[in-house]
């Protein structure tokens, strides 16, 4: 792997520090943004989670080297991701679709 060569590692050390700083900035941003009202509470949640997702992607991609990982590992993660979405999605779905609420107009 090219990324394992000493030069590449030396180069990425700088990147780690930049990303670390970026994460701190984004943390501050999350906090700041939570005191601003974006029209509805769901919007606030969306914005907060969006920033969290960006931070998480940075940690994943850079610190955990997911920007250049082996195919297998992506498969594991996609699988877990899909199932996690299914879990949460269907939980929410089941909570919204309660008889009498006419969610889908019947």
């Amino acid at each position: 792997m090219a990324s394992d060569s000493p030069e590449a590692i030396r180069k990425s050390i700088k990147l780690y520090i930049i990303i670390g700083a970026g994460l701190l900035v984004l943390t501050a941003l999350t906090v700041a943004v939570s005191y601003v009202h974006f029209g509805s509470h769901s919007m606030n949640v969306a914005v907060g989670l969006l920033i969290a997702c960006i931070k998480a992607s940075l940690v994943g991609a850079i610190f955990m080297h997911l920007n250049h990982e082996k195919r297998l590992i992506y498969i594991f993660l996609v699988l877990a991701g899909v199932l996690f979405v299914a879990l949460m999605g269907l939980f929410i779905f089941s909570l919204l679709d309660i008889p009498g609420q006419n969610l889908f107009g019947y």
Binding site: F93, D97, P99
Partner: peptide, 10 residues
Amino acid sequence: TGMGSAISTF
């Protein structure tokens, strides 16, 4: 458990 028909159809 009293789930709606959309989800039980799913």
